[in-house]
């Protein structure tokens, strides 16, 4: 089911008609070919209007677009032999954060990522990609194995944040996240993080301490969601668009700040407009970065990772 954001609505009727023609009529028939041609041109024109200059708020919406590929879609497209592992061996299996081993261009790697859903049922099953402490403890388990077995780790970030609930707090949400971040500094294997959609707060960072942090062009990565920020600072959750401008959670801003290393180009309008292009671009970038890290000794990788995050922060220092 195709889903259109408010500002994309203009495209809807034309794209519907186009799929209709392609599905029910013969496009080689000159009559329909002509219509297809004119609709395609029309769509291209509207696309320019709609996606030409995206605001931060629109990018935030695109980053959580329902039709955007999610972690499992990337795993299916980029990896082979994915073997999912379940459970934290303490309490339960968290469906919002998945992990396991797979093959990337022939190399065995560990894959960890937040998983959102595509429809109401899956969204509920995945808890909207908001993990409980068990999810982070499972991630830790997978990372620990990967470290001992010398397998590179690839993490996919796509979450509104860690789940805020009674059970999550009781079972140590803060501790689980802190331990994950902490543990990632001990890893002797290459770690590559890709922000594919929404990078929300500590719940995202928990699996985000990579030697390389890559980010999809229209993904967002922030300390808090625009709505959450608005609810606290403006005391009005509907001020999200203003908060999105203020927080600057977009890939180009993050690259400038040195928080991410590289932007993965998306098709015009966003990843949801063309999955194949998105996967190809992601695969190429991931492959190049992984190759660059593969030969580096473990201690060096650890040091590199520490220094990368050690240097983050902007402040002034007077003479003391």
């Amino acid at each position: 089911m195709r889903y259109y954001l408010d500002f994309e609505k203009k495209l809807e009727q034309y794209e519907r008609r186009l799929t209709e023609i392609k599905k029910f009529y013969d496009v080689n028939d000159p009559h329909y070919a002509k219509e297809v041609d004119s609709i395609t041109r029309r769509i291209a024109k509207i696309e320019k209007e709609v996606y030409g200059e995206l605001t931060n708020w629109q990018k935030s919406q695109i980053s959580r677009h329902l039709n955007r590929p999610h972690t499992l879609d990337y795993i299916n497209a980029l990896f082979t032999d994915f073997t999912e592992l379940h459970g934290d061996r303490r309490f339960k299996d968290d469906t919002a954060l998945i992990g396991g081993f797979a093959r990337f261009e022939g190399t065995g790697v560990a894959v960890i990522g937040h998983q959102k859903g595509k429809d109401v049922r899956e969204m509920a099953y995945r808890n909207f990609g908001m993990a409980h402490p068990e999810g982070y403890r499972k991630a830790l388990r997978v990372m620990d194995m990967a470290d001992r077995w010398g397998k590179p780790i690839i993490t996919f970030i796509d979450t509104p944040g860690a789940f805020p609930g009674i059970g999550a707090e009781e079972r140590g949400q803060a501790e689980a996240i802190a331990s994950c971040i902490f543990f990632m500094f001990s890893l002797n294997v290459p770690v590559i993080t890709i922000v594919i959609g929404e990078g929300g707060s500590g719940g995202a960072l928990a699996i985000g301490v990579g030697n390389r942090v890559l980010m999809l062009e229209h993904a967002t990565y922030s300390v808090i969601s625009p709505e959450g920020c608005a609810a606290i600072l403006w005391r009005d959750g509907t001020k999200g668009p203003i908060a999105a401008e203020a927080l600057k959670p977009t890939s180009d801003e993050l690259l400038k700040l040195g928080v991410i290393d590289e932007i993965i180009k998306e098709p015009f309008g966003g990843a949801h407009r063309n999955w194949d292009v998105t996967f190809t671009n992601t695969k190429d970038t991931l492959s190049r970065n992984l190759k660059a890290l593969m030969g580096i000794p473990g201690e060096e990788l650890k040091k590199q990772r520490y220094e990368k995050f050690r240097n983050m922060g902007i402040f002034e220092e007077g003479k003391s």
């Binding site: 802190a178 971040i181 902490f182 500094f185 707060s201 500590g202 960072l205 985000g208 301490v209 990565y221 922030s222 300390v223 203020a246 927080l247 600057k248 959670p249 993050l254 700040l257 928080v259 990772r305 520490y306 995050f309 050690r310 983050m312 922060g313 902007i314």
Partner: peptide, 14 residues
């Protein structure tokens, strides 16, 4: 301080 404040969590943890 936006994303930079989040990054302090990882810096300190390191």
């Amino acid at each position: 301080e936006g994303i930079m404040s989040l990054m302090q969590m990882s810096k300190v943890s390191g």
